[in-house]
Amino acid sequence: MSKILTVPKEERCIGCGLCAVKSSLLLGKTIDLSKSFIKIIGKPGKYRVVIDYGTKTDFKEIVDVCPRGCFLIEEV
Protein backbone atom coordinates (compact mmCIF):
# COMPACT_ATOMS: atom_id res chain seq x y z
CA MET A 1 0.00 0.00 0.00
CA SER A 2 1.26 3.50 -0.78
CA LYS A 3 0.00 6.83 0.36
CA ILE A 4 -0.96 9.77 -1.81
CA LEU A 5 -2.39 13.21 -1.29
CA THR A 6 -5.95 13.59 -2.52
CA VAL A 7 -8.34 16.51 -2.59
CA PRO A 8 -11.78 15.08 -1.83
CA LYS A 9 -13.22 18.46 -0.86
CA GLU A 10 -11.98 20.54 -3.77
CA GLU A 11 -15.24 22.49 -3.86
CA ARG A 12 -14.23 24.12 -0.57
CA CYS A 13 -11.08 25.68 -2.06
CA ILE A 14 -10.86 29.47 -1.59
CA GLY A 15 -7.76 29.87 -3.78
CA CYS A 16 -5.46 31.06 -1.00
CA GLY A 17 -2.53 29.19 -2.56
CA LEU A 18 -1.07 28.18 0.81
CA CYS A 19 -0.81 24.57 -0.39
CA ALA A 20 1.12 25.61 -3.50
CA VAL A 21 3.54 27.72 -1.47
CA LYS A 22 3.98 24.98 1.14
CA SER A 23 4.57 22.31 -1.49
CA SER A 24 7.37 24.43 -2.92
CA LEU A 25 8.90 25.04 0.51
CA LEU A 26 8.81 21.32 1.32
CA LEU A 27 11.25 20.79 -1.51
CA GLY A 28 13.81 23.41 -0.46
CA LYS A 29 14.44 26.91 0.89
CA THR A 30 12.68 28.75 -1.90
CA ILE A 31 9.17 29.53 -3.00
CA ASP A 32 9.03 28.68 -6.67
CA LEU A 33 5.51 28.11 -7.90
CA SER A 34 6.80 26.42 -11.04
CA LYS A 35 8.17 23.64 -8.84
CA SER A 36 5.11 23.22 -6.64
CA PHE A 37 3.44 19.85 -7.01
CA ILE A 38 0.09 21.54 -6.37
CA LYS A 39 -1.45 24.09 -8.68
CA ILE A 40 -4.65 26.02 -8.19
CA ILE A 41 -6.38 26.75 -11.45
CA GLY A 42 -9.72 28.28 -12.35
CA LYS A 43 -11.43 31.41 -11.16
CA PRO A 44 -12.67 32.74 -7.83
CA GLY A 45 -15.58 30.55 -6.79
CA LYS A 46 -14.62 27.81 -9.28
CA TYR A 47 -11.14 26.75 -8.24
CA ARG A 48 -9.64 23.40 -9.14
CA VAL A 49 -6.71 21.79 -7.35
CA VAL A 50 -4.25 19.93 -9.58
CA ILE A 51 -1.75 17.57 -7.95
CA ASP A 52 1.33 16.37 -9.79
CA TYR A 53 1.75 12.72 -8.82
CA GLY A 54 5.17 12.55 -10.47
CA THR A 55 6.70 13.24 -7.07
CA LYS A 56 6.11 12.33 -3.42
CA THR A 57 2.88 13.99 -2.31
CA ASP A 58 1.85 12.44 1.01
CA PHE A 59 2.97 15.35 3.15
CA LYS A 60 0.87 15.90 6.27
CA GLU A 61 1.99 19.55 6.14
CA ILE A 62 -0.19 20.09 3.07
CA VAL A 63 -3.24 18.68 4.83
CA ASP A 64 -2.50 20.91 7.83
CA VAL A 65 -1.86 24.12 5.92
CA CYS A 66 -5.20 24.13 4.10
CA PRO A 67 -7.60 26.38 6.02
CA ARG A 68 -10.61 24.70 4.43
CA GLY A 69 -9.70 21.05 4.96
CA CYS A 70 -9.67 20.19 1.27
CA PHE A 71 -6.91 17.56 1.42
CA LEU A 72 -6.56 14.05 2.71
CA ILE A 73 -3.77 11.47 2.66
CA GLU A 74 -5.18 8.20 1.42
CA GLU A 75 -3.80 4.73 1.06
CA VAL A 76 -4.09 3.29 -2.41
Binding site: I14, C16, V21, P44, G45, P67
Partner: peptide, 14 residues
Amino acid sequence: VKGTSPSCYGCPMG
Protein backbone atom coordinates in the same frame (compact mmCIF):
# COMPACT_ATOMS: atom_id res chain seq x y z
CA VAL B 1 -13.94 36.50 10.49
CA LYS B 2 -13.22 33.31 8.56
CA GLY B 3 -15.51 32.56 5.68
CA THR B 4 -15.87 30.57 2.51
CA SER B 5 -15.31 33.35 -0.03
CA PRO B 6 -12.40 33.49 -2.49
CA SER B 7 -9.29 34.58 -0.64
CA CYS B 8 -6.42 36.87 -1.48
CA TYR B 9 -3.25 34.87 -2.16
CA GLY B 10 -1.55 33.63 0.98
CA CYS B 11 -4.50 34.51 3.23
CA PRO B 12 -6.30 31.62 4.97
CA MET B 13 -9.36 33.66 5.97
CA GLY B 14 -11.68 33.47 2.96
